[in-house]
Amino acid sequence: MSLFGFGKAQPTSAERISAVENELKVVAEMHTRMVKICTLKCVDKTYREGELSKGEAVCLDRCSAKFFEAHQKISDHLQQQSQQQGGGFGMGA
């Protein structure tokens, strides 16, 4: 992996496994949150029907797309902020 350059010590086996595991965990957590939130926002809880209505299905599609977009936007904002302030998530100094 050229990513780690030559100067740094090679990560140990355990560290490499944890790194990949964490990456997957972040994605899994995002998935769980998205399902929870979009279900809450889109799905009628009276359960008169066992299937998703057309409207609910479309709402879920849009909700997931928007969730990702918001995720992206917020991560961009935080990155910008932390670059301006030289690290940390500090709110206006």
Binding site: M34, T39, S64, F68
Partner: peptide, 24 residues
């Protein structure tokens, strides 16, 4: 109500997981 709830929840889960995979 419970059996409709289970069916609908699974449909929701499936649909959102498909979208999630595409978006990711």
């Amino acid at each position: 109500c419970i059996s409709r709830c289970v069916l609908k929840s699974m449909a929701t889960q499936t649909r959102l997981s498909e979208r999630f995979a595409e978006l990711n």
